[in-house]
């Protein structure tokens, strides 16, 4: 079983290779690509392990273990990728590094190579409008029903875990 787990871990790293190849070829970042990479990795792992008689269709435990390992790597990879793509703190750190030294009061101005706070706020607002969590009526931003539900759940969890308002 330990050998099997080791192989599953090795094959699940294909998620990273598949995703990197797709992003480099298409030059686009879409969530659907990640789902596709997960499925491709599961199918590939199962096929190879099946060919080498390490798993069969009725070996439920081994199949569940394979799914768990793939999902674990998938979620860890999403976290890593979203940190690279949208990591706010990492961007601040990169901007400080690129500018060598930054006066503490002007950190908001140099953010994202000089785009600043308004750019970030607008970028996030655009992305949540695209996700249909909020909409713009020409003057104000309002929550959609989906956005209301997500926000209610988020507020409850933030209270349970004592996270304050979050996003800081």
């Amino acid at each position: 079983m330990i050998k099997y787990i080791f192989y599953c871990f090795c094959f699940s790293s294909l998620i990273f290779i598949f995703h990197l190849s797709i992003v480099r070829i298409t030059n686009k970042i879409k969530f659907i690509y990640l789902i596709f990479c997960l499925l491709a990795s599961i199918i590939f792992s199962f096929t190879i392990l099946f060919i080498f008689s390490l798993v069969s269709f009725f070996d439920f435990e081994k199949i569940i273990v394979m799914f768990s390992i793939n999902l674990f790597i998938f979620f860890a990879y999403i976290e890593f990728f979203s940190m690279i793509c949208r990591g706010f703190s990492l961007r601040i750190l990169t901007d400080v590094y690129l500018n060598k030294t930054v006066e503490i009061n002007s950190i908001n101005k140099i953010y994202a190579m000089g785009k600043g706070h308004s750019w970030l706020l607008k970028k996030r607002i655009d992305s949540i409008i695209k996700s249909k969590l909020i909409y713009y009526d020409g003057e104000n931003y309002l929550l959609t029903n989906f956005g209301k539900n997500i926000s209610t759940i988020s507020i409850i969890f933030k209270k349970i875990l004592k996270l304050g308002k979050g996003g800081e």
Binding site: Y141, L142, S151
Partner: peptide, 22 residues
């Protein structure tokens, strides 16, 4: 929950009395 800027924005709209913000 702890870091997302997007979640904070929709929570701020939900916290507001009229449920809308400019």
């Amino acid at each position: 929950l702890s870091k997302s800027v997007s979640l904070r924005i929709i929570d701020e709209i939900n916290y507001s009395s009229l449920k809308q913000l400019s």
